[in-house]
Amino acid sequence: MLSAFDKSLLNMLQTDLPIAKRPFAVLAERLGTEEAVVLERLTWLKENGYIRRIGPFFDSVALGYTGTLVAVNVEEEYLEAVAQKINEYVEITHNYERESEYNLWFTLLTPTLERQKEILDTIEKQKGVRRLLSLPTTKKFKISVQFKL
């Protein structure tokens, strides 16, 4: 169970980890506690699976990458094989099976459009793939994965 202190710490850490010397001492001061306490709780929260990742989250477009969301309509009996094939690519970070005529949805980030096309062509040719839609973003209104605890 998360304590009230853990929740305050996670709420703060979700929005801002200081880019400064002794960043956890800065957080500790904001929370009215000691650096050692913050480090001890964060280590526990990480080890117990509450924290997926700490660090910088980069804007893929600002780094020169091209992204798209891909919807695939796959015959049920080939679904697992196609999902495994999709998972092989490091450029594909999220791959979800969803309740829809398009039953696999994945995100693809590549340094070039050529690489994107190469990957999509390969996946489209997998046995059992009926249709594949590439749905690139035209405008981002929000990207902010934060959970108020």
């Binding site: 998360l2 996670l10 850490l13 979700q14 929005t15 801002d16 980890l17 200081p18 880019i19 117990n48 699976g49 509450y50 924290i51 997926r52 990742r53 700490i54 660090g55 910088p56 989250f57 980069f58 804007d59 600002a62 780094l63 990207i143 902010s144 994965v145 959970f147 605890l149």
Partner: peptide, 24 residues
């Protein structure tokens, strides 16, 4: 790192939680 943040290359510096573990 500060300059990446100022120029938008870093959109967030912090933690992302595992949403299932925190109740979502």
């Amino acid at each position: 790192l500060t300059s990446y943040k100022e120029t938008g290359k870093i959109r967030k510096m912090g933690a992302v939680l595992r949403h299932r573990e925190v109740g979502y």
